[in-house]
């Protein structure tokens, strides 16, 4: 029951963008001669916020889905063949008739 998305993807991407955000405040001190150093810093930090929020929204929206995808049977069969290596497939009727 290891949730790889929550325990791997979420921390990695969060740490990455937080690091970029912090870099936005460090970079200006690394280029003290540049008259636009704070503009550059702001750009980096703003990029981090925008990109992280955008990723996070997509991630959270799929965390507890309210609906599942409806896939044409041919595609579903192909997915089973391609992803699961099934040569044959069982019908869903036998799997879960309840819903």
């Amino acid at each position: 029951m290891f949730n790889s998305s929550l325990f791997v993807a979420l921390p990695i991407i969060t740490i990455f963008w937080v690091a970029v955000f912090i870099a936005g405040f460090i970079v200006p001190f690394l280029i003290p001669k540049n008259p636009n150093r704070w503009t550059i810093g702001t750009m980096i930090a703003t990029t981090a916020i925008c990109c992280y929020v955008f990723w996070l929204i997509a991630f959270l929206a799929q965390l507890n889905p309210l609906i599942g995808p409806e896939v044409p049977n041919a595609v579903a069969a192909h997915m089973r063949r391609a992803w699961l290596g099934w040569k044959q497939a069982k019908t869903y009727d036998t799997c879960y008739p309840s819903w």
Binding site: S5, F59, P65, E70, N73, V75
Partner: peptide
């Protein structure tokens, strides 16, 4: 049509980066 039940999402682990590709064909 085959509808994947929400339970078919493995342990509720969303696709780690962006939208799940399955939506493209659904």
């Amino acid at each position: 049509m085959s509808e994947f039940p929400t339970a078919a999402m493995e342990y509720h682990t969303p696709y780690p980066f962006g939208l799940d590709p399955v939506w493209q064909v659904s």
